[in-house]
Design a protein around this nucleic acid. Structure first.
Length: 645
DNA sequence: CTCTTGAGCGCC
DNA sequence: AAACGGCGCTCAAGAG
C-alpha cells in the first residue's frame, strides 16, 4: 500500500508562482478584518439593548415528564419531523459511563415543551422510539456531547451524526484564550443569561423534584439559542469549517474513550521490579559520592555527615554538587550533560532522575487507572486540549508513554485481535513544504527523496549519495530544530543532549545559516510570520482555517506563531482522518483505542486485518491529501501483537 | 492541612 | 528584540 506519486513536473508546476504571490502563511485575513472578528468574542455582549423576552422562555421553559412507554410514543411524535434537537442527560451514580446510570434524557425543539424521558422508569425494550430518534438524521445539539455519547452508547441508545457541540464550538471560537467553558459560563457570555447550576450534582436517582426537572429542561432548551449564536459567530470568524471538523470527530473520541487500552499487569510488574533495582543501585552510587554540605563544621564528622540526599530535590542536588566542587548553578539536564563525562556521579544522577520518573509516573501510576469494570485504561481525551488544536489526554496521559519496547509491549490487545499502528510519515516536514512552498523541499518530496538526508547534504556540502547514517541523524536534528526558529545555543545543546552530537558554537551557527540559505522558502515563511508578529498581530491560522488567538495582555512569542500553522494543521489532518475512520469502521469489528498526535492505534480482529488496514490507510491518506496535496502523504501501518511490536 | 508553583521528564 | 512548539504527571518546597 504505497502512495502513488504524481509526476515531478506536476508538483513543481504547482509551485511555479513566486512565494510573494502566495497567501500569507499565518492568516488569510487582514489584521483589520481579524480585529472585527475578535471584538465579538473578547468583550461581553451588551444584551440590555436586545428584546429580552426572546430569552425569557428559555430561562424557565415548559417541560413534560415522560415516565411510561405509552406516553413516550406520543410525546416523541413531534420530534420525528424535527431537524434540530437539543439533547442533555442527567445521570445518577456519578459521571463514569461504566458505573453511572442515565436517569433523564431531555429533548428540546423550538416551540414545544422540553420532553424529559425518565429512563429509569421505562423498560429498555420500550425505549425504541427514543432509540430511533437518537439514531436518526436530525442535528443533535449538546454541550460536551462526548459525555452524552458515551452515556447513551452504554445505555444502548447511541446517538448518530450529525452533531453540534456548543462546548467544542466555543473552544474553537476562542482557541488560545483563557476561558471558562462550562455551559453556565458560555450561556452567560454569549446569551447574557444566568443559569442556576446548583442542582447539577444533586441526587438524580430517587424521586425528582419539580426544581430538578426544571433545571434539566433548561439545560436542554438553552442549547437551541446557544447554537444559533455560536454558529453565527463561527461563520463571522470563518471558523465554521473547523467547528464542523470537530463535530465530525466527536464520535471517534467518544468511542476511543469507551474502548480504552489493555495493560498486561504481570509484565508491567516485571518491568517495574527491574526499574526499581536499577534505581536503588543508582541511589547508593549517588549517595556514596554526593553529600549535603554540613552547615555545622564542628560536627561534620558525626553521623549527620553521611545523611543521604534526595536526588529528586533540585535544591539538595545543587548544594551537593557545588560542595563537591562541580561548577554548576542549575541542576537541569542541559547544564549537567557537559559534566557527565568528567564526573560519573552526574551520569548516575541523570539516570536516577529518568528511572525514578518512569517508576513514579508510569510503573506506579498507570495501574491505578485500570477500570474495575472493564479492566482497561480509559483516559480522558480532550479533542481540543492544546492551544494549537491538538488533542490532550489525562488520567492517565497515554500520549507520553515511554517509547522503548519493554514498556510499550505491556500494552496488549484483546484475545483474537492484533494492534494496527498507523503513523503519518514526517507530517510536520511535509506541512512545512506545503505552506512554505519551498522549492527544494517540494522537489525532494516529489522525487521521493529522504528529507533528512537532503538537509544533511545541504548543510555539510556533500553529495546526497555520500551521506552516512550519522550524518542523516544530524540532518534530522537540523530539520526539527530550525524549522520552528530554534536559536543557535539551544540548537547546539539539543544536538548534544538528544543525539550526542557535539557541535561548536561556530558549527551550529554555520549549519543554521546554511539551512536557511538552502531552504529559501522556509526563510521567507519565517520572514512573513516575523513581519506579522512585529506588527503586533495576535492571531494565527492554519491552512485549514483553524485559529489561535493571543490575549491583549500577552504578546505572542514569535516561535509560537511559527509553530502554530504546522502543529495546528497536523492536528486537523489527524482529526479529519478520525472523522472518516469512525464512519468507515462501523461495519467492522475494529476499535479505535489511542491517538498520539500523528499516530493512530486500532484493535482489530485477526480475521479483518487486511480489510481494516485498507480502510485505515485510505482514511489517513485522503485526509492528508486534502491539506498537503500536491505534497505526497505517506502513512505507515504496522500489524503488531502489542504496542511495542 | 491543602493548594500552588516550578523543576524535571515522559511523548509527538 | 524573540531565541523550537504543544502537552500531563510527580515531587519538592513554599504559601496560606
Amino acid at each position: 500500500m504505497k502512495f502513488k506519486p504524481r509526476t515531478v513536473g506536476d508538483i513543481i508546476k504547482h509551485y511555479s508562482t513566486p512565494h510573494a504571490d502566495r497567501a500569507c502563511p499565518t492568516s488569510f485575513y487582514s489584521w483589520e478584518e481579524t480585529q472585527v472578528m475578535m471584538k465579538d468574542i473578547t468583550t461581553h455582549n451588551n444584551f440590555h439593548n436586545l428584546p429580552n423576552n426572546k430569552f425569557i422562555s428559555a430561562i424557565k421553559p415548559a417541560y413534560k415528564l415522560i415516565d411510561n412507554a405509552e406516553h413516550l410514543k406520543i410525546a416523541l411524535k413531534p420530534f420525528q419531523q424535527a431537524k434540530i434537537i437539543g439533547i442533555d442527560c442527567e445521570t445518577a451514580l456519578g459521571t463514569d459511563p461504566y458505573r453511572a446510570k442515565v436517569r433523564l434524557v431531555q429533548l428540546a425543539i423550538p416551540d414545544r415543551p422540553v420532553t424529559i424521558v425518565d429512563i429509569g422508569a421505562i423498560a429498555p425494550a420500550d425505549l425504541n422510539p427514543l432509540r430511533a430518534l437518537l439514531a436518526g438524521n436530525a442535528l443533535k445539539i449538546g454541550h460536551n456531547l462526548k459525555f452524552e455519547l458515551m452515556m447513551l452508547t452504554i445505555a444502548q441508545l447511541p446517538p448518530s451524526l450529525p452533531f453540534f457541540d456548543t462546548y467544542l464550538a466555543y473552544r474553537v471560537l476562542v482557541a488560545g484564550l483563557k476561558r471558562n467553558f462550562s455551559l453556565e459560563s458560555a450561556v452567560d457570555r454569549l446569551l447574557g443569561i444566568k443559569l442556576d447550576k446548583t442542582l447539577q450534582t444533586s441526587d438524580w436517582s430517587g424521586t425528582l423534584t419539580p426544581n430538578q426537572l426544571q433545571y434539566a429542561a433548561t439545560d436542554a432548551a438553552i442549547l437551541l439559542p446557544l447554537r444559533e449564536t455560536l454558529k453565527q459567530k463561527l461563520k463571522v470568524s470563518k471558523l465554521w469549517e473547523t467547528a464542523k471538523l470537530e463535530f465530525a470527530c466527536l464520535p471517534a473520541v467518544a468511542s476511543m474513550e469507551l474502548n480504552g487500552m489493555l495493560l498486561d499487569r504481570e509484565q508491567w510488574k516485571v518491568l517495574g521490579d527491574k526499574l526499581c533495582q536499577t534505581r536503588n543501585l543508582l541511589l547508593t552510587q549517588i549517595n556514596s559520592q554526593l553529600h549535603l554540605p554540613n552547615p555545622h563544621q564542628q560536627i561534620s564528622l558525626l553521623p549527620e555527615f553521611t545523611e543521604t540526599i534526595n536526588p529528586r530535590s533540585p535544591k539538595q542536588v545543587l548544594a551537593a554538587l557545588q560542595s563537591a566542587g562541580i561548577p554548576v548553578n542549575s541542576t537541569n539536564t542541559q547544564t549537567l550533560i557537559p559534566f557527565a563525562g568528567k564526573y560519573p556521579v552526574i551520569q548516575a544522577l541523570l539516570d536516577y532522575r529518568s528511572v525514578s520518573t518512569r517508576i513514579s509516573t508510569f510503573v506506579e501510576g498507570l495501574p491505578h487507572h485500570i477500570h474495575p469494570v472493564t479492566g482497561k485504561i480509559h483516559p480522558n481525551w480532550f479533542q481540543i486540549g492544546a492551544r494549537s488544536g491538538r488533542f490532550s489526554c489525562r488520567e492517565p496521559n497515554l500520549t507520553n508513554i515511554p517509547r522503548d519496547g519493554e514498556t510499550r509491549q505491556c500494552f496488549i490487545t484483546a484475545p483474537g485481535c492484533v494492534l494496527l499502528k498507523a503513523d503519518y510519515s514526517q507530517i510536520e516536514l511535509r506541512i512545512m513544504a506545503k505552506i512554505s512552498g519551498d522549492r527544494a523541499m517540494v522537489a525532494a518530496y516529489a522525487k521521493g527523496e529522504d528529507l533528512h538526508k537532503l538537509t544533511a547534504s545541504l548543510v555539510l556540502d556533500k553529495p546526497l549519495s555520500k551521506i552516512a547514517s550519522d550524518e542523516r541523524q544530524l540532518g534530522k536534528i537540523v530539520n526539527f530544530g530550525l524549522i520552528y526558529g530554534m536559536g543557535v545555543n539551544k540548537f547546539k545543546h539539543m544536538a548534544q543532549s538528544e543525539h550526542g552530537v557535539i557541535l561548536t558554537r561556530e558549527k551550529a551557527s554555520l549549519f543554521r545559516k546554511k539551512f536557511f540559505n538552502s531552504y529559501s522558502g522556509i526563510k521567507q515563511f519565517h520572514a512573513a510570520v516575523r513581519q506579522q508578529w512585529q506588527k503586533g498581530i495576535r492571531e494565527s491560522r492554519t491552512a485549514s482555517g483553524r485559529r489561535r488567538l493571543w490575549s491583549k495582555e500577552s504578546k505572542p512569542l514569535l516561535n509560537e506563531m511559527l509553530n502554530h500553522p504546522i502543529q495546528g494543521l497536523s492536528a486537523d489532518i489527524t482529526k479529519l482522518a478520525l472523522a472518516k475512520l469512525v464512519v468507515a469502521l462501523k461495519r467492522t469489528g475494529a476499535k479505535l483505542i489511542c491517538v498520539v498526535h500523528d499516530e493512530i492505534l486500532l484493535e482489530c480482529p485477526i480475521a479483518e486485518i487486511e480489510q481494516v488496514k485498507t480502510l485505515l490507510h485510505s482514511c489517513m491518506v485522503s485526509a492528508g491529501d486534502k491539506f498537503l496535496s500536491p505534497i505526497p502523504c505517506e502513512v505507515e501501518i504496522k500489524v503488531l501483537a502489542t504496542w511495542g511490536g
